[in-house]
Design a protein around this nucleic acid. Structure first.
Lengths: 199, 199
DNA sequence: ATATTCACCTAACAAGCGTTTGTTTATGGA
DNA sequence: TCCATAAACAAACGCTTGTTAGGTGAATAT
């Protein structure tokens, strides 16, 4: 399924250097997204990566380290997508910038990428210190939306914080009702913004 | 099925009839909320209920049956709370009714009740038929909000569906940022409604 | 008084868990 | 060619999991 075989040629051998680490991470992201952390076994991940369970420990020291790595990669991807999208329309109106950021956020979330969805799922409660790290990662990401909402022309200054909670919350929740044959991420963002934009 | 719960006196001895079933369900709801379904063991639940793991099977045939029962009870509680709250302000404006319903929904969710929060958590992916039942339960509940948003005076007719997704989504997501010493559920509902209400 | 039912306990089961250990194979640099 | 290293395998480790089987004493029914 997820392979990572080089496209260069008929070499069955691997070109040295731990390029299978990415395959392991992909497999973990895939399983964590589909089954959640607790319900995913190391043997699940190993099977998808084409190796045995014990071999995973060459690349990662533990199961929780795998989750942390998936989260880090996921946050990095969403953050990059949002930053690129927003900076591309920097000259436009605050509402347009916010909508663009929201659309990029939704696109990352709903566009099929495993990493992003793992970030959104709620965190494991049984490993407190891991939990803290993951929360810190997500907080760091959501920070950039604070700037976007503060630029909006709102009736009250303290509306900004509620605007962020309303829109980002609804966006994160959308994974429960989103259908591939329904409204696109960009369309969802537009519809949501319409409802809160002053008329 | 056959119940015949007596409404008679308060004996210190157990009045026969499986009244410890409720204690088991409470323990399950508590653990499922705090740790999630997969990370909760039957021994966890049994300990909290003051019995041994095997004894749980006198009251429930399996772990998944326990989750289903918690969901059913949770949906019943939230639905009742919302219905009671909304019917108490039936004469008011559509916006007021919607806000009241949303506040009741948030109150159930954030007010410390374990059952309600279990309903909101995302569903176990590894048991498909159980998953279907739980989704059906939740869909059934959310149905009543469709009526509330359809009464709102909106610019477009198809805004209603988006209004519901926006507000309920943000409400369900609020469990990730809600703090006991911050805004109350009613306050949150009011703030959210303010942002989408035509000015 | 006797029998039955209830609500639990004790004790185990097989399966699966994350992880560790020792070993093997392939590779690239000296 | 020789050897250090990378990246895997094979097999087990101790432990936990959901679940089951049979037993026990008290409460109830006959």
């Amino acid at each position: 399924m997820m392979d990572g075989l080089s496209a260069d040629g008929a070499e069955t051998v691997r070109p040295r250097g731990n390029n299978r680490r990415a395959a392991v991470l992909d497999a973990a992201a895939y399983r964590f997204r589909r089954q959640g952390y607790a319900a995913t076994t190391m043997r699940d991940i190993a099977t998808d990566a084409g190796m045995l369970a014990g071999s995973l420990y060459y690349h990662f020291p533990s199961k929780s380290a795998l989750l942390l790595a998936v989260h880090e990669e996921g946050v990095r991807r969403i953050a990059d997508a949002v930053d690129v999208a927003v900076s591309a329309v920097a000259a436009d109106s605050p509402w347009q910038r916010f909508e663009t950021g929201l659309a990029a956020h939704l696109q990352s979330l709903l566009g099929g990428g495993d990493y992003a969805q793992v970030v959104i799922r709620d965190l494991p409660a049984d490993e407190p210190e891991l939990r803290e790290k993951l929360i810190a990662l997500r907080d760091n990401y959501e920070q950039r939306f604070k700037g976007l909402v503060e630029d909006l022309p709102l009736a009250r200054a303290d509306d900004a914080i509620w605007m962020r909670l309303l829109l980002l919350g609804a966006a994160n929740w959308s994974k429960t009702w989103f259908r591939q044959d329904g409204a696109s991420p960009a369309e969802i963002a537009h519809r949501f913004i319409r409802l809160v934009r002053a008329r």
